[in-house]
Amino acid sequence: MTQATAADAATFAVAVPALGPDVRCHVLQPGRPPLFIEPAGERLLDRAQFRQWSRTVRPALDALILEHGGIVLRGFPTAGTEDFADFIEQFPAFDGGYAGGRAPRETISGRVMEATRLSASVRLAVHSEMAYRRDYPRRIAFFSRKTAEVGGETLITDVRHLAERMDPELAGRLATLGSRTAINFGPRRDADDASYAHMDERGWNQSFHTEDPAEVNRLCAERGLEPVWHEDGSLTVLNALEPFVVHPQTGRKLYRSILHMLPQVENPEQDLERRKRQKYPTGATLGNGERLTDAERAHIDQLCDQTTYSWPWRDGDVMVLDNLQVWHGRNPYQGTRDVQVALLD
């Protein structure tokens, strides 16, 4: 890699011959995800030409997502949901779907979903998509249809070396004991809210897209989950998981867990009261029921902070991440933000 010209001095140019002469590539820092890909001329500003190019170079894009942990397509003709939907159509979909997913989000069109309806004031901690599940998408795509006026950046965290940097004693305890996650859903609700101050407020019917508890039980059994129904009509879903996984392509051992995470909330005091009332408080424990100590949680958070990055987003940006190697989150924001996602394999 060589440092870019003065016009783009904050980045480092990367030569990728497999993408052809009509694009230029760069990274913000050597070895740091993602790889930015931009048009080098006028040809790929045409939607038909961009569509043909993206399908021709798809194998190269796959390899770059794996190598760099993620890519960002910037400056291409991806202004609307239909453009994003067309781009992701060439990638295999995640067959598991999002029934019972944690984030309050709805389908926009086809495979395209909202990113989250979590309140704009909440910082969404970095995480691997569906880290509370046995089955998860291998990749996740983001589309910034409308960038917030203030804040709202999609954060990413490079976790490729996190497991090996973790305190060996802690890593050994996690590997030996495993984890158990608890995800709580509210009672049946008639309508989705425009935003949620706490993810636990969303009704189970809205998350599982059914009004039938028997169907929820069936979906849970299919996914290896244990549903626990409560007298007030709310639902807890329990799941036993291994905190470490092996990447199917790189063979690297990776940390993939919510053990260190606290609930993403607008009001921590109200959350504490909520958790006191819950039979199974939202979050994760070790397999023996113990929670990580504050020091252990802080240790993992510190490791994440060391490789968490953000940059100003632009309308039309499309990012595809390797969901195991690079996590994502969101800064709080002001104004209007429309970020859309798709789960890919």
Rank of each mutant, 00 (worst) to 15 (best):
E273C: 09
R330L: 01
V159R: 11
R160M: 15
F91E: 07
Q278F: 02
G100C: 05
A10V: 06
A10W: 10
D271L: 02
G172M: 07
S144C: 11
Q49C: 10
L174T: 03
T2V: 11
C304R: 00
Q29V: 05
T81P: 05
D232R: 13
E231G: 12
L241N: 04
D135R: 13
A163Y: 13
G69Q: 03
Y196I: 05
T210I: 10
S109H: 06
G335F: 05
P77G: 03
L170D: 05
I65Q: 01
S128R: 06
A7G: 13
R74H: 11
A115V: 04
P33E: 05
R180Q: 14
A60G: 01
W53I: 02
V150P: 08
A15F: 04
T2Y: 12
A99I: 00
W311D: 09
V318D: 00
D193K: 06
D190T: 11
P59T: 00
F50C: 02
R165D: 13
R123M: 14
L344G: 01
H230K: 13
T157M: 14
I258W: 07
S144K: 01
S234E: 13
F142R: 01
R189G: 07
P21L: 06
G287T: 08
E42N: 08
K253D: 14
D301Q: 09
M130A: 13
T176H: 15
D232A: 14
V126W: 00
A6E: 10
T107W: 07
H209C: 15
Q249G: 00
M319C: 06
D338R: 08
T157Y: 14
T147G: 05
L73K: 03
G96A: 11
P187N: 08
R111V: 04
A6D: 08
Y136S: 11
S195I: 02
T293Q: 03
A214H: 13
G97F: 04
K279D: 15
S128F: 09
D62N: 07
T250K: 04
R145Y: 09
A240I: 12
Q52H: 10
A171G: 12
K276T: 07
H230W: 15
E226P: 06
R105P: 01
N217G: 14
R189N: 09
R51A: 13
S179L: 12
E67S: 14
Q306I: 00
V320I: 14
Q29P: 03
Q3D: 09
A120P: 15
P281R: 10
I108K: 02
L35M: 09
V27T: 10
L174I: 10
D294V: 10
A191P: 01
P77R: 02
L28E: 13
L170S: 03
K146Q: 14
M1D: 09
F94D: 10
H299T: 02
D135G: 10
A79F: 08
L64C: 02
P268W: 05
G31Q: 02
D271V: 00
D322Q: 04
R188M: 09
A93L: 12
V16H: 00
L174P: 03
V245W: 00
A240Q: 14
D190H: 10
F84V: 00
A103G: 04
